[in-house]
Design a binder for these strands. Structure first.
Lengths: 107, 107
DNA sequence: ATAAAATATTCGGAATAGCGAACTTTAAGT
DNA sequence: ACTTAAAGTTCGCTATTCCGAATATTTTAT
């Protein structure tokens, strides 16, 4: 699993079988800039541009943004869990929240 | 609840009782720029800066970025829930995931 | 093997993010 | 009311984002 932005972008783009041109067209960014995001270090792209790319590539913007200390596997589980949680009825959510409280870490 | 970035920022800053100077110090941004984010339209801040602010203000970066169809209170509860969930031990997480499964699309 | 087409990379420059410092307003104390 | 300090606002400037067009490379077809 990719760790820095450029790798994540490249990986996703290849997975979707997009060319730079195609991704540029779909996201509204220029292909030259996408290329720079993939290949140059220390870019500081706007949240807006990242979100546009994330939308097209089918991930959340935070996937690009947040560097994470969790192992990819665990992170993946966590995100899937949260996606499922969000789809629940409010009642079920509340029940889960209560259950979570009882689990809270004891240091 | 605030909908655009400036409002969200201002609201959170006031809630935490931070001055511009204080928030600037804590986040590493300049206070003039934070003021512009709060007060000027059509800013395009970098994800990096937004993340710095989000960290200090105790929200997720995506709170600033993603617009959401959920009601604000529900969204807030969801996010708080996920933040808590992530801090759990892996075993606890797994238990919760199993419980979530039993809740899935139950009318 | 060569041409044509598709894809990737480089580059110059306009637009603007983001800063420091100066300035203005508000709040607090005497 | 006057002073001082704290908070907010403006402004000029530099660095960086982000683009379009040109160029280079790879792929595909003949």
């Amino acid at each position: 699993m990719a760790t820095r932005l450029g790798e994540k972008l490249y990986e996703l783009r290849k997975k979707r079988v997009f060319t730079l041109d195609k991704l540029a067209e779909l996201s509204g960014l220029s292909k030259s800039y996408i290329w720079e995001l993939e290949n140059k270090e220390s870019q500081r792209p706007s949240a807006e541009k990242l979100t546009a790319l994330a939308d097209v590539l089918g991930v959340s913007a935070s996937y690009f943004i947040e560097e994470d200390v969790r192992q990819p596997e665990e992170r993946h589980l966590d995100e899937a869990f949260f996606r499922n949680y969000q789809k629940l009825e409010p009642d079920s959510k509340q029940q889960l929240r209560k259950i979570l409280d009882t689990f809270k870490k004891k240091p």
